[in-house]
């Protein structure tokens, strides 16, 4: 159980700038950003396209497709579908592409490979 208000710093003397400059970390950052940025842009565009249609293309959105179900309702429900799909996609991407490499870097830092003054083994109580 947590008994300390601070984040326990297993990696106090770490040279984070060195970690940041490693090829592996750059790769992790690239993988993260190359997924989340385009995806964020895509779903925001799709969402605002929907809001604009509902706002300024009322006639189109009111077109009945089947019974009383109109295009507006279908597009609205598709927003739900796309949200669920992106969620699933992101989770599988993180599990495959982000988590392993993040765990590797984390273990290296905690194993003192990036300590500022040599391989000092202090401050770790694991």
């Amino acid at each position: 159980m947590g008994n300390d208000a601070r984040i326990p710093d297993a990696a106090a003397p770490v040279d984070f700038e060195e970690v940041q400059s490693t090829a592996r970390f750059q790769e992790l950052r690239k993988r993260h950003r190359s997924f989340v940025f385009p995806m964020a842009v895509a779903f925001l565009l799709w969402y605002f396209a929907y809001v604009l249609l509902a706002d300024y293309a009322v006639g189109f959105m009111s077109t009945k497709v089947w019974g009383n179900i109109n295009i507006g309702l279908i597009l609205g429900l598709l927003q739900f579908v796309s949200t669920f799909a992106i969620t699933g996609w992101y989770v599988s991407y993180s599990n495959r592409k982000l988590d392993p490499i993040a765990a590797e870097i984390r273990h290296e830092i905690e194993g003192h490979e990036f300590d500022k003054d040599g391989n000092r083994v202090t401050g770790v109580n694991k």
Partner: peptide
């Protein structure tokens, strides 16, 4: 401070330090 920026970026993406917040 660029060192702080590096620390934040590394921590945020790798979870170093924060992951063990439970059992200390």
């Amino acid at each position: 401070d660029t060192a702080k920026q590096a620390e934040m970026e590394v921590r945020s993406l790798t979870g170093v330090g924060a992951e063990k917040a439970v059992d200390h």
